[in-house]
Amino acid sequence: MSPVLGIAGYVLREAASRKFIMAFMVGLTLVLAVVALGMRIDVIDGALAASRLFGQEVRATIQSVDVALRPVYQASAFIVFYGGILFGIVACSDFAPSLMSPGRIEHLLALPIQRWHLLAGTFLGVMTLALGGTLYGTTGLVLIFGVKTGYWTVGPLVAGLMACVGFAAVYAVMLTMATLVRSAALCAAAGFAVLVGGIIAGHRQDIAKAFEEGLSRSLFQAVTLVLPRLSALAEAAGDMAASLPLEVRSLGTLLVGVFVFGLAALVVGFWRFEGKDY
């Protein structure tokens, strides 16, 4: 078995023992169960005739199911994107620092694995966790609404995958931070900084206008140029979930930008980790 998979398994086993991650999965299941059991939707000829939540009628005009579900899926995509990244930052901030703790890192480094295996495995383990949680939530939502309304779409799943891409860029920075300073708090802070920076970077053209022309605007543009456009990615994810036309000019370029940012952060982390003494 590949050492990278071995380390990923190590991280996942650690994750399974964390109470708050288990609590999150239970909470997610409860939300899905409440939506599945508490919501009743009547569809006639592909149109939403009536919907009730815990017996209370939800006021809505008669409209086709796909149109009626758009705001639901769009809101879900934003919750999954921002909520998922925020939860990921908090829940995964101490995986890498914990693996690099004294007494554990020496033991791992003395095993017949390469140093990069350790970082790659940690990254893979965390991303598997993020992907699993995201797919569990979004698939559950699609299944519930699909069964209740007969309207099936993969939009929310694709939006969930895009949220994972955004989180990958954020976690790459957190992992790199762990190779510099073994602190869960600083890893989380780095993750928050990238998230906030990524939200700003997504609106950099609009925000830049608020700066005076000259050095300050150029500086802002230079700093935000290298950051991943997370808010633009979130909006694209929302549009995809709601099956709306994309507002971003090129989703491909957006994804490549986020990917390159994450990869660059990881390369710095790998380089630092290779030369570090423990």
Binding site: R13, E14, S17, S101, P102, G103, R104, E106, H107, A110, L111, P112, I113, Q114
Partner: peptide, 17 residues
Amino acid sequence: PRIRARIGYLPERLHLP
């Protein structure tokens, strides 16, 4: 790693899960 595969190591303060 082929050399390290032949080594058994117990660190001073082994941190176990």
